[in-house]
Amino acid sequence: MIGDVRAALAIARKDIRNLSRYRIAVASMAFTPLYQFVIPAFLFGAAFAVNGRATGLTATLGTDDLTGFIFLGGVVAGIVSTAFWGMAMSIRNEMDMGTLEPSWLTPTSHEMFVIGRAIGGMLFLILTQAALFLFGILFMGLRLRPEMLLALPAVLLALLSMVGIAYLLAGIVLLIREANFFIDTANFLFVTISGVSFPVTLLPGVLQPIALALPTTYAVDILRVQALGARPLFGVGIEYGLLVAGTAIAYPLGRWAFARAERTMRRRGMLSQY
């Protein structure tokens, strides 16, 4: 057990070490959310402003804090894509590179390869989010309220549920051929349906039940309610309950799927196929 924990930490350290040697890639990873989402979304939102106030957003959500709305959504988007890319897809990348096989030859429990990446991914996420928030505070008038900290348990729960989902995803991407396309599309849908860029109430009817089944939906909502005073979907208490329930389902389900995928691979012998 202690050996496994140490192994998980070694995986996290190796990931960060390895990443730090691809500087252009890291720079582009930090820049991408800015150009792809934060700045365009802010300027798009500002195009609807009346006399410098986001009156439209107030009508939708009960808050006119456009910057806060975008950045807090970004936090959950960051957690989700860390799970999709950092925890799940990076295992697939190792398989394609040929480094997964020797790792699986060690006595370390294979689950640790997800957990270790989760630790490394979180450290990286904290760094990139801190950089983003700094940018927001300096250039976009982002204001942080201390009440925001009340939403911290929601963020942590969302994180835990995403580790569960990462197990499931890792199981999938190790088996399928077009893993990149799958992760890319599924990540976008997951983020969007969780209500990161607009409230889930605006989703088409068929997608709303899916949104309400995702733990991240409640994390986004609680975060905005606590930090911006936005109108909640159901009420913070109920949403916490749903978030805990979602996590309690996602985690064991993910582990089960991962174990199954691993067995399939050992039966079919796909570990070093590339």
Binding site: F44, G45, F48, A49, V50, G56, A59, F198, L202
Partner: peptide
């Protein structure tokens, strides 16, 4: 289809169907 649709929905969130906000846009 997916990407612009998401942005149109974002536009709906930002406008809140408020005539003034739509006029400003």
């Amino acid at each position: 289809v997916l990407l612009p649709t998401a942005w149109v929905l974002m536009g709906r969130a930002y406008s809140g169907n408020d005539p003034q906000a739509l006029e400003a846009f």
